[in-house]
Design a protein around this nucleic acid. Sequence first.
DNA 1: CGGGGGTTTGAGTCCGTTCAAAATACGTGG
DNA 2: CCACGTATTTTGAACGGACTCAAACCCCCG
Lengths: 240, 240
Amino acid sequence: MANHFPADSCFTCPKADRFDWCRHSLSGLTAFDTNKNTKLHARKETIFQEGEPCDGIYCVQSGEIAIGKSDRDGNMVILRIADSSSTLGLSSFFAEREHTTTAIALTPTRVCHVPRSAVEILIARNPKLAYSFFKHVVAELDEMEGLYLANATTTVRQRLIHLLDSVKDRYATSNPNTGVVLKLPLSRCDLASMVATRPETISRTIQQLRSEGIADFREKFVTIPDVARLAVEARRTRTA
Amino acid sequence: MANHFPADSCFTCPKADRFDWCRHSLSGLTAFDTNKNTKLHARKETIFQEGEPCDGIYCVQSGEIAIGKSDRDGNMVILRIADSSSTLGLSSFFAEREHTTTAIALTPTRVCHVPRSAVEILIARNPKLAYSFFKHVVAELDEMEGLYLANATTTVRQRLIHLLDSVKDRYATSNPNTGVVLKLPLSRCDLASMVATRPETISRTIQQLRSEGIADFREKFVTIPDVARLAVEARRTRTA
DNA sequence: CGGGGGTTTGAGTCCGTTCAAAATACGTGG
DNA sequence: CCACGTATTTTGAACGGACTCAAACCCCCG
């Protein structure tokens, strides 16, 4: 499982620009350092799971993490993707209850776990921090409401295109004259979970997008000849 | 449109037990009273709308309100229903941006609008209040994640049954030996929006539930012979 | 009594699912 | 570094749930 080793110090946080909320709370960081816990997770490893008690928050230093939720039959959907700019577990932390989602590493990942007590100390010293966290959660709520709506009113093709559009900046590798090339940390199954459909359907939809000249999937690389077209195509229902 | 009249005083709030966050903040209520704005909305009236600037929060004193979101083509889904125990607009308020959802009265409704300045004063006097609000938003996020999952993995029939199950306490009118009777403030169109489908499908599903003896819809009244069965049936895919 | 919105019913179609098999990628050990 | 076994992905065919469009129906209100 996860690789344990001496915790990183917040004062030498490998994340160059730290976390948005962290930048403004440097004075309280010593509380963090005394209790922190840094772990390395391999691909597919679980960082935390639905139903597990939540005893703090997670700072993602590097890697890509899928945040998902599954029902009793084992069906799983990916709600969002967290990366090195993310802080995980905020909602469960503030609700003071078990995790309601599951976090799984999509790539090798380095994560700091900060226990409840340390977070509370930090907030006590800097009350505005709570607002910063609050805004994170609000953004997630807004995101979820949008996802829910999109899922109810669009086709798989539209959702997949929209997904590409929404991650095009995050995963762009190069921009030669052939168009933008994305390197997705997602398998076809992951893509399926993200647009709430089945792998078979994703496969077929990918073929369709290729034939339409919208996006060309090769392994985990996606070539998009005309990025601007994504936004347009995301609204079209008919294949025409 | 909405019926304006002198604002209610928080000190004589018609809501007997006040709001959970309000109960603990009585000392700051004078700030509210100076600026508040009480409105009466008729059925189908809009209380606030997506894109509108958010300049405070709303306390629902009485009535039922649909919180929805719609896309550019006018498709609308109902995300949740607010009633007299609800405070509206918290997420937009704390995100400090326009409303991302629309609130429409399902029944005649009495709502107090509390401007931003007043809320801020109240929070300043009682910082714990922010946590109370925070928890509200977290609960909504959790709810949305669950809805999203359910929508992706269940049929309309399952979702409708689950909906009945989840509102059975809120709308129960009587409990004669014929079973529980609910009085829903929802039209068939509203039901459709709540389970993310079309009115026609709701109509057909209702027929199905009647023939299965699960729920009998008559106008806005729903008779449920065996409430315990709802939870069971909500998991069954096959009609068998 | 005559609209008119909401609801129901019907028929046909489509998108996405399901199940099954073939093809391809991938990791692991020799 | 290659060969093999496993997992993932693709392809195919058939099915089914929900949508669409359209018409009939019904109830409420004026």
